[in-house]
Design a protein around this nucleic acid. Structure first.
Lengths: 211, 211
DNA sequence: TGTACATCAGTGAACGCGCGTTCACTGATGTAC
DNA sequence: TGTACATCAGTGAACGCGCGTTCACTGATGTAC
């Protein structure tokens, strides 16, 4: 019978309020943007009193930072899956990382906004910064594998190549590939735009295209 | 003496409150982000009563949209100046458009944020949309001039090339070249990153580099 | 050139509202013995 | 296995505050004659 008592009484101790608040923030950010939610909002969404969130987060910004941190972790996982250890070949896998970037931005507009458009200064929050760096490291690893196949002469540093990929994917995602109302319409898909850019870029690097 | 009376009494009729409010919004956005200012804030900054802004803007969002619209107009002017009619040659001028993009983002973080990160849906405000299109038209014109010098065979559409430039410049500016606290540090300048990317990209298009 | 009047652009007081935050509290849970 | 106690995670009432918005108003400006 104790489980039954728990189920009834469970309303008091929420059990996992911390995660519920992050989930609430995501929901509210998706609807109204990173600026469009309040601490009280999140509490209401999670079904607790307005004082409850203070048990878990110092303030609204701390909650927002945790959403961003969690977002970077999922982002990292998605990029890693896109890379797939360089399979079937580094060139294809490199392109797949770009596609994963776009897929994440579209599927998770709330995480994306918290990560990149919330105004949180990346350099002032070490944990957040570290989470972002781990995600970027995936891009860098991919660029390094790809660079290894290039002729040494005139080869750009892998770090730079990874920053090129990051910037291009980020620009396309922010302008044309977002999952919220800020998206600009385009006479092609975001994926096609990225793929065409990568094609020309890789050609410039001297990487032979598949025929 | 009438000028003196004006100077004293001028406090009543502000004279150019509309512009003053836009200026106030820019100042406040620069400090605290697009979400970080209120209608009352702007009025206070401009030195008028909290009811005064209603004579000029329906609400906060209308003011924000006007900031963005004005921003796009200045952006367009800056890109046009960068292009400089394709002088000294289309290739150099094309790169200069990219530099102008970065320069604007760095020099005008408030405009940039209002234009691209305020959450205003671009497709729901025709005037705003038109202002953005005019700015983009500069990129497109530049890409068309550049494309005219390319071998016809395998040449990508100029529209696509201009979208590539836009996305890359935007990605770099948003991540590494912004003028506010959201900037990520980088082991090179944003300009160097853009230039290196363009170099590879143009090589991929078969455009001979200058030696 | 002067006067009367309409219009415009601001005032300032007032309001209801929701937010952030604090506080003493209490119900539920975990643990020592 | 049961009991006492400490700790934890929530309540709910309260507060001060600033915001958005309305309102009747008034000072300044422009214009007709």
């Amino acid at each position: 019978m104790s489980w039954k008592q728990r189920a009834r009484a469970g309303a008091y101790h929420h059990g996992n309020l911390r995660e519920a608040l992050i989930q609430a923030a995501r929901e509210l950010i998706k609807e109204k943007g990173p600026a469009g939610f309040t601490f009280a909002d999140a509490a209401r969404w999670a079904g607790v009193s307005p004082a409850a969130p203070y048990r878990h987060f110092r303030d609204r910004e701390a909650l927002l930072a945790d959403v961003a941190r969690e977002g970077f972790a999922r982002f990292e996982a998605m990029l890693t899956a896109g890379w797939a250890g360089g399979k079937p070949d580094p060139l294809t896998a490199f392109n797949n990382v770009g596609r994963a970037y776009l897929a994440f931005a579209r599927a998770e507009p709330a995480y994306y906004a918290a990560m990149f458009e919330s105004g949180l200064p990346p350099d002032l929050n070490p944990e957040l910064r570290a989470a972002g760096d781990r995600a970027f490291a995936v891009l860098r690893g991919a660029a390094e594998s790809l660079a290894a196949n290039l002729p040494t002469k005139g080869r750009p540093p892998a770090l730079m190549m990874s920053l090129h990929l990051w910037s291009m994917a980020h620009g396309i995602a922010s302008l044309f590939g977002r999952g919220d109302a800020g998206r600009r319409t385009l006479p092609m898909t975001a994926e096609e735009l990225l793929e065409s850019a990568m094609l020309i870029y890789l050609q410039g690097l001297g990487i032979p295209q598949k025929g």
